[in-house]
Design a binder for these strands. Structure first.
Lengths: 350, 350
DNA sequence: CACAACAATGTACACGCGTACATTATGGCA
DNA sequence: TGCCATAATGTACGCGTGTACATTGTTGTG
C-alpha cells in the first residue's frame, strides 16, 4: 500500500508538496503538479481517508440516526423510505464526497448523540423517528447544548427552541381531512391515531379536534382510537371501531397503512367502504393510490423534508457556520381526494 | 474536549493503562480500573473514534453502495428497501458498534471500490443494484483481485467465480409462474422484463423460456417486452401489449410495479384483468397484496438476502478470515397465487 | 531465601496526514 | 545591480490512539 512518502520520493518533492497537489492548496508549479500526479498514478497511491479525517478532525460523513425495531422492515415504511430518499438526494447533489452513516438506536431510550460528535464519527446528524419521551428529549437537548449541526425530522420540541426541526403541518393536514368529511355532512367522525409520544401524532389529533370543535362537536362525543402506524394495528383496531359503529359515521386515520388495515378488518365484519363508513388515510403513500378503494388521504412532503434537512446541514458544514444556527421549518400538506370517501363536487386539492 | 492524557493524569496512571481499561485489554487491578473509569466519567471523556480507527487501520463501518438515479426515490422501492432492511437487521444484531456507510454511484459507470478500501473508509462492502455492464463488472472484478470482504446482492457474475454473490433463484421463480399459467391452459404467455444488463432480468427471462420450451412453445411465438422495473414503464408497455393482444392470452411481468402499471394501462384500453388477460407479477411486494386485483406473484426473500450478505461480511470481519472467502448463495423463491390470475384449484404455495 | 512466573503498569513509537512556519527561487522595478 | 513581493517548496510537528516491549510489583515454590 503506497503512502504519501513514497509518492514524494518518486516525484522528488517533499510530502507537503504532495499533500498540496492532492488537495489543491496553495500555488504549485505545473510541472511539479504533473510529476506528483504521475508518481501517485504509477504507485497506485490512494489517500488514506481515515488518516485525513484524523488530521482534519472531521470524519466527512453525515449521521442518520434511526429507530431500530426488531422484525420491522424500516426502509419498507413509506415514511422512512421517503425521508431517507430525500436525504440521499441531498447528499448526492451536495457532492460532499462523504457518505451517510446510518446508525440505529432503541426507540424511547436515550441515545448518546453527543458521543457521536465527540468521537468524530459524524460531522452532522439527522434524527429520524424521535419521540417526545423524556430520555430521548433530554439526549437531543444535550445535542443543542453542544452547538453542533443537527436536525430532527418530523418531530417538534416546542418547549426547546434551540432544537432545529423540520416538520410537516400535520395540524393543518388532519384539519383539512376532517373538514372534508364535515363538509360532506358527516358529524360523528372517529380518529385512529398513532402513539402520542410523537409530536406528529399529537398534531394530527389537534387538527382533527380543531375541525370538530369549529363545527360545534364536543370533545368526547366521538371516539379516538390508538394504533402504532402499522397495518396490523389498524386491522386490530377494526374490532373496537366496529363495536363503536353506532357512534360513528366516518373514520380518519393517522396514516395510510392503518387505514388500510382498518378497512380490511372492517370488511371482514361485513362493512363496505365507503358506503357504510368512509375512511380517510394520511401520508398519500404509494399504497393509498393502489388500494381498493383508493384512499382519500393527505399528502405529506416527506421526501422534501429529508432533502431540506440534509441540505441545511450540508450548507452549514461547508461554509458559513453559525448563521441561522437553529431553524424550525414547517412544510405544508395537501389533501388528496379519492374514493374511500364519498364522491361529491368538492375542490380536488387545495 | 478531554483527551486520554488528561484522564491518565487525573487517574494517576499512564496513557497506556487508560487505553487498556477502556478496551478491556490485559490484566488490570480492579482499583486502577475504577480510578480510570471515574476519571473518564468526571472529565466526560469520549474516545476519539477516528483516531482509534486510524491507529487500528480500520474504520469500523460497512459500506453499502447504491445506484443513484436522480428523482428516483430509491428507498421507496420495495426491492432496495427490503434488502437494506435486511442489512440493517444484520448490523444491528451483530453489535459491531460501527454503522452502515451509504455511498452512491452512477449506475453503469465504473465505481472505484478499491479506493473505498484503500482509503480505509470501509472494512467491508455490499454492492446493490449492480449490472453486468463492462465498466461495472470490471470494477467489481478488481475488488475480487484485492481479496477484501465484499458481496454483491442479487447480481451474478457467473464468469468470475471469485466474486461473492447472494442471489435469488429467479430462473425457478419465473419458471414456476409461467408453469402456473401453462397449467391453467394458457399458451401464448407474453413477458414484460426489466433491463437485460441485470443478471436477475436475464435469469427471469431464462426461467420463462424454459417453461415455454418444456411446453413445446417456440421461442419467437410469443412477444417479450422490456421495461425498467418502474410502474411507469409498465404503464407505457400497455400500448405495445395491447397492440399484440391477438398473440397473447396471458402476461408475466418481471416485477409487481410493472405489472401494476401494465394493468392500469390495459384497463384504460378497456381490458379487464384477469378475465381478458391474466397478469402475473413478481417480488410479492406490499403493493401486490393491496392492489385491485391482488396480484399473483413470486415471493423473493430480499430481506433475507440482505441480512445474509451482511451477516457473512460481519462474520468474516470479526474473526476467522479467509475461510470460505468467496461464497455464492442462491435463495429460493415462492409462488403466491392471488386473483390477477384466474382462480382454479391449485396448490396455494410451493 | 532465591528465583521463577506472572500480574500490573510504564515507555516509546508508529499510524498518514494537514498545515503553520521557515526557507529558497523568481521576477519586476527603480 | 539591489531590493522586495510573491511564488514555490521544504521542515517540523501535532492530531489521539493502539500496542510492542521494557520495567516493576507480587506470589508461590523449592
Amino acid at each position: 500500500m503506497a503512502t504519501r512518502k513514497e509518492v514524494a520520493r518518486m516525484a522528488g518533492v517533499s510530502e507537503a508538496t504532495v499533500s498540496r497537489v492532492l488537495n489543491g492548496v496553495g500555488p504549485i508549479k505545473e510541472s511539479t503538479r504533473r510529476r506528483v500526479l504521475e508518481a501517485a498514478e504509477k504507485l497506485n497511491y490512494q489517500l488514506n481517508a481515515v488518516a485525513a479525517s484524523f488530521a482534519r478532525g472531521r470524519s466527512g460523513n453525515i449521521g442518520v440516526v434511526l429507530p431500530h425495531v426488531p422484525k420491522v422492515h424500516l426502509f419498507s415504511t413509506y415514511y422512512f423510505a421517503e425521508i431517507l430518499s430525500g436525504i440521499g438526494e441531498a447528499v448526492q447533489g451536495g457532492e460532499t464526497g462523504g457518505g451517510l452513516l446510518l446508525l440505529y438506536r432503541k426507540p424511547g431510550e436515550a441515545y448518546d448523540y453527543v458521543s457521536l460528535f465527540r468521537s468524530r464519527r459524524v460531522d452532522a446528524c439527522l434524527i429520524l423517528g424521535a419521540s417526545s419521551l423524556e430520555p430521548e428529549r433530554q439526549s437531543i437537548s444535550r445535542l443543542a447544548d453542544e452547538g453542533v449541526p443537527f436536525c430532527v425530522v418530523d418531530q417538534r420540541f416546542a418547549e426547546d427552541p434551540r432544537i432545529p426541526t423540520i416538520v410537516a403541518d400535520h395540524v393543518e393536514g388532519t384539519y383539512r381531512a376532517a373538514r372534508l368529511l364535515l363538509d360532506l355532512g358527516y358529524r360523528r367522525i372517529g380518529f385512529l391515531n398513532g402513539a402520542p409520544q410523537y409530536s406528529n401524532s399529537r398534531d394530527r389529533l389537534a387538527g382533527y379536534r380543531k375541525a370538530l370543535e369549529e363545527a360545534g362537536i364536543g370533545g368526547e362525543a366521538v371516539p379516538v382510537f390508538e394504533g402504532n402506524y402499522s397495518r396490523k394495528s389498524g386491522y386490530e383496531a377494526a374490532e373496537a371501531v366496529h363495536r363503536e359503529m353506532h357512534r360513528l359515521d366516518a373514520m380518519l386515520c393517522a396514516n395510510d397503512r392503518m387505514a388500510i388495515g382498518l378497512i380490511q378488518g372492517l370488511r371482514e365484519r361485513g362493512c363496505r367502504i365507503p358506503r357504510d363508513l368512509p375512511v380517510v388515510g394520511y401520508d398519500n403513500s404509494d399504497a393509498a393510490a393502489l388500494f381498493d378503494p383508493p384512499l382519500t388521504t393527505v399528502e405529506v412532503p416527506f421526501f422534501e423534508m429529508g432533502k431540506l434537512a440534509a441540505e441545511r446541514l450540508i450548507k452549514r458544514l461547508s461554509g458559513n457556520a453559525g448563521e441561522e444556527e437553529t431553524f424550525q421549518a414547517v412544510l405544508p400538506t395537501r389533501l388528496v381526494i379519492r374514493s374511500s370517501s364519498p364522491i361529491r363536487e368538492e375542490n380536488e386539492s387545495e
